[in-house]
Design a protein around this nucleic acid. Sequence first.
DNA 1: GTCTATAATCTGATAGAC
DNA 2: GTCTATCAGATTATAGAC
Lengths: 207, 207
Amino acid sequence: MSPDRRAVRRQETKDEIIAAAWDLVRQQGLAGLALRDLAQRVGMKAPSLYSYFASKSDIYDVMFREGYLAFAAEHDDLVVEPDRTGADGATVLRRMAHRFFEFCTSDPARYQLLFQRTIPEFVPSEESYAVALDVYGRLTSQLAALGFDDPQTIDLWTALLTGLTDQQISNDPGGTRWEGLVDRAVDMFIVANAPHLLEATTRGSTP
Amino acid sequence: MSPDRRAVRRQETKDEIIAAAWDLVRQQGLAGLALRDLAQRVGMKAPSLYSYFASKSDIYDVMFREGYLAFAAEHDDLVVEPDRTGADGATVLRRMAHRFFEFCTSDPARYQLLFQRTIPEFVPSEESYAVALDVYGRLTSQLAALGFDDPQTIDLWTALLTGLTDQQISNDPGGTRWEGLVDRAVDMFIVANAPHLLEATTRGSTP
DNA sequence: GTCTATAATCTGATAGAC
DNA sequence: GTCTATCAGATTATAGAC
């Protein structure tokens, strides 16, 4: 049952190709991914890629899934139960916001692939879409643990965070113009949706 | 000095080409604009387009400028001085938000061209960029008239609005999932940034 | 102004030898 | 598994006849 060395080697090559693909889209833009360039980057000719992936869309699909898994990995250690670590709800919320903002703005091409619909010829496979849904489910669980269980409140939260990241990426790429507003945006969200979170702690204390 | 009939006819043809280009990008996506298809739509062959536009990028540029002019036209009648029309500041702010949301979500391709950087080969000309800056200046003037003169507050406002529109376009195209949150988002913004606007009027009265 | 013809280049994908 | 060779098509853009 365990994968033999041939399967391991094969998987390593696939990983190497995907890593090269990330390099390429970061450099050329998401839509600028060309199989010839990709093959060259791993020391192959273009047709050889088809031994590892069925199509270009299949490559996007693996990147899509990998991107969501990376998102989950970077957000899983977020404290879900405030009392256990001594961090209050407002602090956890600010931490979530900064983590999300950093994840998105640090790799605009990935943000584009995961959260926007800009490559018309790519539709996530059922399997990959399930991963995306699962990640979204974790997000709602974390917010529910903080007392936000209304779907509309969660939609407002995601709109607020994607708005900040989107403006940062589109209008000040590489800068910090909207990054500096993350704390203020979170405070605004708390004041309007859960003012009790602010009363329990000292305002303005951001880790 | 006045344009003769030849110049008028030429401008009409240019307008017709641009209108066809809008149709095409709405249908095929912004990046899917092909000169062959565009020419066919106006009953020409592709090379004939070069009598009217210097390049494909030039066509994008005219669309970019036209899009910002349309934005200005749809937002110019917004009441800048509340007292004159009897509408209070909160009402004007809600109106602005709905107008912006409608403008963006009603034409995602236009939103992509005007507010996102997704066509790497297109860079707005100096003239067109000036139009964009002018429109942004009008927006800040309107907000300043409502008492929002802090640049960071304005950045927060634009982040909030683009976040709502972006989520609507990306995750519920054609639906109303985030549209229904516009009023709530505006209230949140007012509560946190200008609570006095809410005290002066009855909450929840939306035109 | 509009056309035909074509340049020059790119794309994803396949067949078949080795 | 990897290659060469190639298909079949797309793209923007130009030259030059009419």
